[in-house]
């Protein structure tokens, strides 16, 4: 999933304080799972904002709505009839949802309500960690299913660097060394001899470096 974190409420207040009516728009996908922008968080944020503006003597209308997704036309169309009632929208979707909502409703200011971080997993209750940076050319087959691009702080393809200590990364004792994980895994698979194969220089043109990316599937289009 895409992992995001709630923005500090003060930042959201600054975004919307000049408006008289605001829609808080949640998303039922990733941000619901990572508890940053689902129906529950929409409710909590809306209540907090109402209380804040009430205390300031402001008559601000703050409504709540949560879509199945904000990254599909089909679901975004649902708010076509209601969006005109508001001066602005705070989207609690990831950066993708915020942008797609803004692209669709070009006359309406759309504000981000979360900070979007990474593609990751729920490691344990309340802990989400990164697994993929979407480089566009998956190399997991040769690294024991553990990604050095996302799990090594230096995205070293022939690691580990000299900073790996007792299984941890030099940047922080709480971060596992991705290459230690790869080596442990290769060993568990009985494939440690593969460690000595040099990983070739990577083609980053499928990564962010190549510019905004696009996937086109003609078989799906027809």
């Amino acid at each position: 999933m895409i992992v995001a974190e709630k923005k500090p409420i003060q930042e959201i207040i600054e975004e919307i304080k000049t408006h008289d009516s605001v829609l808080i728009l949640g998303c039922n996908e990733c941000v619901t799972v990572c508890e940053a922008g689902g129906k529950k968080e929409v409710g909590v944020l809306a209540s907090a904002l109402r209380m804040y503006f009430l205390n300031k003597g402001r008559d601000m209308r703050i409504d709540e709505h949560t879509l199945e997704r904000q990254c599909d036309h089909e679901y975004l169309d649902e708010i076509r009839e209601m969006i005109d009632q508001y001066d602005g929208v705070v989207s609690l979707a990831c950066g993708v949802g915020v942008q797609f909502t803004a692209e669709k409703y070009t006359q309406k200011p759309i504000y981000p309500g979360v900070n979007t971080f990474f593609m990751g997993v729920t490691e344990s209750r309340g802990v989400w960690t990164e697994r993929c940076q979407g480089c566009g050319q998956c190399i997991l087959a040769s690294t024991g299913g553990i990604c050095p691009v996302s799990r090594c702080a230096k995205r070293i393809l022939n690691g580990p660097c000299g900073g790996s200590t007792t299984g941890n990364c030099e940047i922080n004792k709480d971060v596992a060394c991705g290459w230690q994980l790869i080596i442990d895994r290769l060993k568990a698979l009985g494939r440690l001899d593969e460690y000595e194969e040099l990983a070739p220089i990577k083609d980053w043109s499928t990564d962010r470096a190549g510019g905004p990316r696009k996937v086109v599937r003609e078989d799906v289009q027809s």
Binding site: P160, T165, G167
Partner: peptide
């Protein structure tokens, strides 16, 4: 080369890799 970094078991394989690079 850091002969002391972890994991120790790959320190020499890692050196070999640098030599072949």
């Amino acid at each position: 080369a850091n002969p002391f970094a972890d994991p120790f078991e790959i320190r020499v394989p890692r050196l070999a890799k640098k030599v072949s690079a």
